[in-house]
Computed example of a mutant assay.
Amino acid sequence: MVYSMTGFGRGKKANDCLTITVEMKSVNHRFCEVTVRMPRQLLMFEDKIKKVVLQYVKRGRVEVFVNVEGEGLTKKKLQVDWQLLSDYYQSLQEANERFSLQDRVTLSQLFSLEGVTEIVEEEAGNEEIEQLLIDATHEAALQLKSMREAEGRALINDIREQLSFITECAFKIQMFAPEVSEQYRERMVKRVGEFLQGMIDETRILTEVAIFSEKTDINEELKRIHSHVEQFTAAMGSGAPIGRKLDFLVQELNREINTIGSKANDSRIALQVVEMKSALEKIKEQVQNIE
């Protein structure tokens, strides 16, 4: 199966206290890179999230976004500075005695004094939260993989069409090629005959045609084009990540097509070279998006 490198996935899990939503999107990348954005209380699970994603993705840049709704991530706790509270109380009692006052000191007064109480948040550290997070990540990654698979099928179908077109062009060139030398010989005979008024050195003509044929011979290039197309087709059915291999084959095909273009001394062959290069450019764009 061939996978695209672009896709999107979403997973959502919840318990009585909170809901965890994991979203991830992937784009083209030369290697495999995973980045995670999440609440700081969950940072301890970052490596586990990345390991889950890497079970489904072998190449591409994946961005993971974790959102938490609810109060289950932290627990609120009241802290009392008993020493400070005691100091406040002693000071108020001393003030009553020193100034002959009869004011009662109440608990509400004491607890409203600055610095006596503080509400702090503690991380819950709940194993259930971790399991919800991992399950949501699996669900999102599975959706991502499914979307990448569907896009991969579309890419492969288009690539197969372009490869078939390149093969057809190569066969046409193969049919035109033998005629090029013959046409060159006829032009040579005509020009030399006109110049020498019919006195033609047939041996010299054959030598020139042989040299021309050697310079313009494209049989090896055509064979390599057919070989690269076969390798391309075989790779697409291998089931392994093939993006880099296909990118290499595109470069090799481009090299052979350019060589044929530089050797071509025929308008029909030149036209087929242009058509092949156009199809190969489309393949190149598609290959850039294959895992």
Rank of each mutant, 00 (worst) to 15 (best):
V53P: 05
L144R: 02
V189M: 09
G125L: 00
N265K: 00
E71N: 15
I269R: 02
Q90A: 13
L110T: 02
I242F: 07
E149D: 13
E281A: 01
F111P: 08
R40N: 07
L163I: 11
K58D: 07
K263Y: 00
F99T: 02
M44C: 10
I156V: 13
E221P: 06
V209G: 00
G72M: 00
S146E: 15
D47T: 06
I49V: 05
A154S: 13
K25S: 14
E33T: 10
V52Y: 03
E121G: 03
I211A: 09
I205Q: 08
M38W: 04
A235G: 06
Q93M: 11
A95D: 12
T106I: 05
M38E: 04
E291K: 04
L73R: 05
E291P: 09
S112L: 09
T137C: 03
E114R: 08
N258P: 03
I200W: 08
K145T: 04
Q109A: 12
V180T: 06
V180E: 04
V116H: 03
Y89N: 14
T74C: 03
D87F: 12
V53R: 07
D266H: 12
K223R: 14
M44Q: 12
C32N: 03
V68K: 01
R187V: 10
R185L: 02
P178Y: 00
V273A: 07
N258C: 04
Q41W: 08
T259E: 08
A177S: 07
E186D: 14
L54R: 15
G115I: 05
S86M: 10
K58P: 08
E281F: 07
I242M: 09
T203A: 15
I156D: 09
I225D: 04
E128Y: 08
R37K: 03
E221N: 08
E252W: 06
L142S: 12
F232S: 10
S278T: 11
V273Q: 00
G72S: 00
F31W: 14
V274P: 05
G11N: 02
T106Q: 01
S26G: 08
G72C: 06
Q55H: 13
F171D: 15
A154Y: 12
K13V: 13
K282G: 03
T207L: 12
Q183D: 05
E114Y: 01
L54V: 13
I225W: 00
P241S: 00
V229L: 10
K50L: 05
R244T: 01
D217W: 03
N96P: 07
Q174L: 11
T21V: 06
V27A: 10
I205W: 09
D247Q: 01
E94D: 11
L142N: 11
A234H: 13
D103P: 13
L113M: 06
A14G: 02
D47K: 08
E220K: 02
T74W: 04
K51L: 14
F65G: 15
Q41T: 08
F171N: 15
T74Y: 06
F31A: 14
R185F: 06
E151L: 07
M5N: 07
C17A: 15
M44K: 09
E202R: 14
